[in-house]
Design a protein around this nucleic acid. Structure first.
Length: 945
RNA sequence: GCCCAGAUGGCGGAAUCGGUAGACGCGCUGGUCUCAAACACCAGUGGGGCAACCCGUGCCGGUUCGACCCCGGCUCUGGGUACCA
């Protein structure tokens, strides 16, 4: 019987869809299991063979869990807002909604061919108003919340207003932009506008004047994770620092919880470490340095090395620091202003590329709080305004950056560790015994000294002294910044915000969603406003509670709406919750659905989201947890990162200045240029010469120098992309080999979490395996499954397979499952096994990997129902018990021969047998036995001398 | 610079507990079938040697009866991150 995969796959896909066998509902009888893939951005290029890798792995797991009796939720949707659709719209005028719709249709068509067990009834699209209603809703909830440090939870803003109106800021311990101090009387005396302004300091979603990454070419601000090396991730355009009023999310409030939460989740250590570094907790000390004149502010600095206080020889302010202006003396004003202006002009990229030492003296001095010594205050761009307090105490002997600065400007360097050499470089290590702290003859405050302590002891002692003497305080800093939440783009979620007297006002929740307005142009307006500035119907009527025409704006009852839209991560931050209850019009997710599905048990996606989506999503979920929407504190229990599938490019070698192409093995005899050639006209690295001549007009008259009558192409592993001509489309593989072969082959390629090149050369092996598997069940054209009693060999082959496959799936080692199937198939074929008791469980084992063929065989064996309603076979050790075992015998660790021993033999008996063997005499000749080590069922090692 | 991961035949990769290194697949070689080719099937395939054997998991050293695996020191590759005080 021929294995006709095209017919089989089409038939089963239709039946699965018609009977909705992958549709799931809450089922109190069964335990739940939630499998999730990071949903794709539907790009215009469609899927290539790399995209389905993670989907196939998670589908195998989902089908396996279903067979194990779980109620499995395995949804799919689209992250549909994004820059490429908008840029395409700018170029062509085509509305992004239309191209997005087309791309989604194409994705769906491609996904459907691979046989996934998705419950499409739960599909979400981030650009659907029914979906982004809940994105806007969550934003409003954040706007109306603040973060209480004492209860480590988000609280309604009304609770804060109560506190402020009765106690002012007294006893307040909350997350805030800057620490404010005022009394209840002050608060009550504020105008409504002032109160609103003040509350912005505390809201979890707030409008803040912050330094942002501004990308002029894209016309928008970008989040920190969207900028790499000073250029935008998308497009690679330069990014500059600019102060702008932007919506922000107070992610920093959750820094500690985001850090703590990592300990309880099953993610790869590398991703957790990346997040820990990104959060960047550092424990240190804030110290106050007094300046000399009453009209100059005192300077607060942050340091993790308080122990180096006696080595401070200068201070440095960030150019953007608010301390700069009041601390600049008249004599230095021109130089300082010039320096600050110069710094502003340089992009971050330039600052990184050309890391020269620069700076300028302010003319002012501060006093060392421990010795009263006069310390010059400088300004330099190596100090960042955004971290700590934007001011540092410089200890050139023990910080390499301070060292470089001191050397450049000839400032003193004062070593504080016994025996350290600072003549060439600073001594940054936190090891050694402290000296010169204070130096001989220097008077220290209250006789305080660190001399003789280790650095670690000195840090503790200094912190204690600083706290006791009110010179500052112990402080924990986080590198994690608040997320900038505005984008000056069209194709994103609009904010449910309008402006009254310049102050933002929330639109009531019950009016959501506020739908994205139509525009005719997708570019910023001529006055530099975001694209929504082009909308003509984009004003809020506070009476009728609806969006109305701009011409009606009177700033009395009708007001302008926010022109920015939300960033890409907004829609992807809570989509896993929405899948639980995708059609609920009254809640993001019902309590019932949330209580049942709880959180994602298995999340599969790329590691490139480590500092983006995977942080924002955890933050967003923690907020929803605080307000009682999500019952779990962490959204994703187990995370598996699939590797990238790279392209395997092929090359032809043209002899320079000719139309002659030389085969790989002969190319070194000529002066050649390698040229990328379309991998689709190359098979097993052999070029299809005729196809090549037709590929492009310029190769029409190409001539070839062959080896063994063939043209062999060179190859290289590169990113899979159109320009390298190495894109492999899964549709073509499915057409030629079938979806089951594609699935098996993608898993066989290598470990799931490893990046690896796509190599079509090996796919025949996977196709051959499925054909052999299919043939197990047929005798010529008839199904050959009978009710015969299985032999011990049959049972052994089966149970070996059950054990291996079950373990592999649990461990996500699908690449080693495929060989196990191949071996079992070979064994069962040579045993001529036709027993139903063996073949039926074998089909169930294969079903997660190759669902179509499994269904077909299941059906042909006489079952009407789907194989996925069966039970996963139970492994029984007893079938694997051997009567005899092969053991290796080695002498001094070198294996010489093997012996067959009874499985029940004791170690002594095994030793007797190994030494009694005729071979033993040969190897023992002229030697003495020192000892014999017997490892049961494995090896007998005889130590001789 | 710092952090993380890795290095095994011609290639992708196995060896999940420190116990016969190279499973399985690709490729290659030989054979069967065929007028021939493709497909399919069968056999062989780490290197050296006629053989007994010897050598072999990036490099150097250590622990052990025994090391791809553990420890110390390097080299290289991939990824993340970077004036974070």
């Amino acid at each position: 019987m021929e294995y006709n995969f095209t017919d089989i796959e089409q038939r089963w896909r239709k039946r699965w869809a018609d009977e909705k066998i992958y549709h799931v509902d809450i089922d109190g009888e069964k335990p739940k299991f939630y499998v999730l893939n990071m949903f794709p951005y539907p790009s215009g290029a469609g899927l290539h063979v790399g995209h389905p890798l993670g989907y196939i792995a998670s589908d195998i797991y989902a089908r396996y869990k279903r067979l194990c009796g779980y109620n499995v939720l395995n949804p799919m949707g689209y992250d549909a807002y994004g820059l490429p659709a908008e840029q395409y719209a700018i170029q062509t005028g085509q509305h992004p909604a239309i191209t997005t719709e087309q791309n989604i249709a194409r994705y769906r068509e491609q996904l459907d061919k691979i046989g996934f067990s998705f419950d499409w009834d739960r599909e979400v699209r981030t650009c659907d108003p029914k979906y982004y209603k809940w994105t806007q809703w969550a934003f409003l909830r954040m706007y109306n919340s603040f973060y209480c440090n004492r209860c480590a939870s988000a609280q309604p803003i009304s609770a804060l207003v109560d506190h402020l109106s009765t106690k002012g800021t007294e006893g307040l311990d909350v997350a805030q932009t800057e620490e404010l101090h005022f009394s209840a009387a002050n608060w009550n005396a504020m105008s409504e506008q002032e109160k609103q302004q003040t509350l912005m300091n505390y809201r979890l979603a707030y409008l803040g004047e912050t330094m942002v990454n501004w990308c002029a070419e894209l016309g928008t601000v970008l989040a920190n994770d969207e900028v790499v090396d000073g250029v935008s991730v998308r497009g690679g355009y330069p990014v500059v620092q600019k102060k702008m009023k932007q919506w922000c999310l107070r992610v920093s409030a959750y820094a500690q919880r985001l850090l703590d939460g990592l300990n309880g989740i099953d993610w790869s250590e590398s991703i957790k470490e990346t997040q820990r570094n990104w959060i960047g907790r550092s424990e240190g000390t804030e110290m106050v340095f007094h300046t000399n004149s009453a009209d100059q502010p005192e300077i607060t600095i942050f340091t993790t090395r308080a122990d180096t206080i006696f080595g401070v020889t200068f201070m440095v302010l960030a150019p953007e620091s608010e301390y700069v202006k009041p601390l600049t003396t008249d004599a230095q004003r021109v130089a300082v202003e010039q320096y600050v202006a110069d710094t502003k002009k340089r992009t971050e990229r330039e600052r990184i590329a050309d890391r020269r030492v620069s700076g300028v003296f302010t003319g002012s001095y501060a006093q060392n709080p421990f010795t009263g010594e006069q310390i010059p205050i400088w300004v330099s761009d190596y100090v960042l305004s955004g971290y700590g307090t934007g001011a540092i105490m410089a200890v050139p002997a023990h910080d390499s950056r301070d060292y470089a600065f001191a050397r450049h400007f000839n400032l003193p360097i004062r070593p504080l560790v016994e025996g350290c050499d600072v003549s060439e470089e600073s001594f940054d290590a936190k090891e050694g015994i402290v000296c010169n702290s204070p130096a001989t003859g220097v008077e220290s405050l209250k006789g305080f000294t660190l001399n003789g302590l280790t650095i670690k002891e000195a840090i503790v002692a200094t912190k204690q002294f600083v706290t006791d003497n009110r010179l500052g305080r112990v402080k924990t800093n986080y590198r994690l910044r608040d997320a900038i939440f505005s984008r000056q783009r069209y194709w994103g979620e609009p904010f449910p915000i309008y402006y009254k007297d310049g102050m933002p006002q929330p639109i009531p929740e019950e009016c959501l969603p506020i739908e994205l307005p139509e525009v005719t142009k997708f570019l910023p307006t001529e006055s530099g406003e975001p694209p929504l500035g082009n909308a003509t119907k984009w004003a809020w009527d506070t009476k009728s509670l609806q969006v109305v025409d701009n011409s009606l704006i009177d700033n009395q009852t009708i007001f302008p709406l926010e022109l920015s839209t939300m960033p890409g991560f907004a829609g992807s931050s809570a989509y896993y919750l929405r899948y639980m209850d995708a059609h609920n019009d009254t809640a993001l997710v019902s309590e019932k659905a949330d209580q049942y599905w709880r959180n994602v048990d298995l999340y599969v996606g790329g590691s490139e989201h480590a500092t983006g989506h995977l942080i924002y999503s955890r933050f967003w979920n923690k907020f929803l947890h605080d307000i009682g929407v999500s019952c779990e504190e962490e959204p994703f229990g187990k995370l598996v990162n699939q590797g990238m599938i790279q392209g395997r490019s092929n090359f032809v070698y043209r002899i320079k200045g000719t139309q002659q192409f030389v085969s790989l093995g002969l190319k070194d005899n000529y002066d050649v240029t390698p040229i990328h050639v379309d991998v689709n006209i190359v098979e097993n690295d052999v070029l299809d010469i005729n196809a090549f001549r037709q590929w492009r007009p310029e190769y029409e008259n190409a001539e070839f120098i062959l080896e063994d009558g063939k043209y062999i192409c060179g190859w290289a592993v590169e990113k899979m992309s159109k320009s390298m001509f190495n894109v492999v489309n899964p549709d073509l593989i499915v057409e030629r080999y079938g979806a089951d072969t594609l699935r098996i082959y993608e898993m066989f390629l290598g470990p799931i979490n490893q990046s690896k090149p796509w190599d079509s050369n090996g796919i025949d092996g996977s196709a051959r395996f499925l054909r052999k598997f299919w043939n197990l069940f047929f005798d010529n054209d008839t199904i050959a499954v009978d009710d015969s009693t299985p032999t011990p060999e049959n049972l052994k082959s089966l149970h070996k397979l059950i054990k291996k496959i079950s373990e592999d799936i649990e461990d996500f080692s699908f690449n080693t499952s495929v060989p196990a199937f191949m071996i079992a198939t070979t064994e069962l074929a040579s045993q001529k096994c036709h027993s139903r008791q063996i073949l039926e469980p074998t089909v169930i084992l294969l079903a997660p990997f190759a669902p179509h063929i499994a269904e077909e065989l299941w059906n042909r064996m006489g079952h009407d129902a789907t194989v996925f309603d069966e039970k996963w076979p139970v492994f029984d050790e007893k079938y694997l018990v051997e009567s005899t075992v092969k053991m290796a015998v080695s002498f001094n660790g070198k294996t010489r021969y093997t012996i067959d021993v009874s499985a029940s033999a004791s170690n002594d008996e095994v030793q007797q047998q190994a030494l009694g063997d005729a071979n033993a005499a040969k190897y023992l000749e002229g030697h003495q036995i020192v000892k014999v080590i017997v490892v049961p069922k494995r090896i007998v090692n005889i130590v001789i001398k």
